[in-house]
């Protein structure tokens, strides 16, 4: 069992020499040791890949790849229709008619993003706890908080890619189709800060909340249910309270509903008015931004605290 020794080489003239060929024995590692920073970077990359099921079996890839494809689909369809409309000279009319553009894209795929969070965040934190692999990570050149933050950042990056790829398709498609490419680029480029900003806020808030929930259970199913509950219940409660006519309480309750908060930051960043169902909201619009940042900070703190204290 301990490697083929000299005896395993029939007909070898000099057993000791054959042995040195077939059983090299243990060799020291004299190469570079890149330390903690490298370990953290590697763990971020591993988390990003794991969120999409890369490096795992085929079944682990089905959900994330399917959801990613669905998130891209509207952008592809719009670019396709825009191409046809441009040939027919009806581009302007179509752009006015289409319900999906840069500022509404995030909202239109929000359910997909939510499902991605619910399905894939437990793939990182819950899975590591269930497999007992935390002891192996914590015994390496990392701090516990490094592990927690690296996993969190990796997942947020996976969400960011999912949010930005469709926007990039939409952007490139629109620019290339137009007759005056430079002008079209100049016009759409003004939206880039808003697109990237909203994507960052969405990835941070949804990723943070989903990871915070999945940090507390080794059971995937519980984590998934918990994430969906956290994303859906506050919005419903806020809606009921508002329907009952208490908009003062409703004002504050909607700040606990991540969906509404992201609608608010989206409106703020793209310079639009609030969606119709938020007309009762009489606090300044930037409170949505404060609520989003607060949500991110709290999520990160909860996750780090959890893994600093967890027993392995």
């Amino acid at each position: 069992m301990t490697g083929p020794g000299p005896a395993a080489v029939p007909g070898a003239a000099a057993p000791s020499r054959a042995g040195s060929i077939y059983d090299l024995g243990y060799r020291r590692y004299e190469g570079p040791r890149l330390g903690r920073t490298y370990a953290i970077r590697s763990l971020v990359l591993d988390s990003f890949r794991s969120a999409y099921g890369l490096g795992r079996g085929g079944r682990a890839k089905v959900a994330p790849i399917a959801l990613g494809a669905i998130a891209i689909l509207p952008a592809v369809v719009i670019v396709g229709v825009l191409t046809i409309a441009a040939r027919l000279g009806a581009q302007r009319q179509f752009e006015q008619a289409t319900p999906i553009s840069f500022d509404t894209y995030f909202n239109s795929i929000s359910v997909i993003i939510l499902l991605f969070c619910a399905a894939q965040a437990p793939e990182l934190f819950s899975r590591d706890q269930r497999n007992g692999v935390l002891a192996l990570y914590f015994a390496r050149a990392l701090r516990r908080s490094d592990y927690a933050l690296a996993r969190l950042v990796g997942f947020a990056l996976a969400l960011l890619v999912m949010l930005l790829v469709p926007q990039v398709i939409l952007f490139i498609g629109r620019v290339l189709i137009s007759t005056d490419i430079a002008a079209a680029f100049g016009e759409d480029a003004t939206k880039i800060p808003a697109i990237v900003g909203e994507a960052l806020i969405t990835a941070g808030l949804l990723g943070g909340l989903a990871m915070a929930v999945s940090a507390f259970t080794p059971r995937r199913a519980y984590a998934t249910a918990g994430i969906i509950a956290l994303f859906v219940v506050p919005g419903i409660v806020a809606g009921i309270v508002i329907q009952l006519g208490s908009s003062a309480i409703g004002n504050w309750l909607v700040l606990l509903s991540q969906g509404t908060v992201l609608d608010g930051t989206n409106a703020l960043l793209f310079g639009k008015s609030l969606p119709e169902d938020l007309f009762f909201f009489d606090l300044p619009v930037w409170t949505f931004l404060v609520a989003a940042v607060a949500g991110i900070v709290v999520s990160v703190a909860v996750v780090v605290r959890r893994f600093v204290r967890i027993t392995t």
């Binding site: 890149l34 903690r36 490298y38 370990a39 763990l43 050149a141």
Partner: peptide, 12 residues
């Protein structure tokens, strides 16, 4: 994967 967590470059 765990070797990289100890700071070893990927190929090593």
């Amino acid at each position: 994967h765990l070797a990289t967590m100890s700071g070893l470059p990927r190929t090593a």
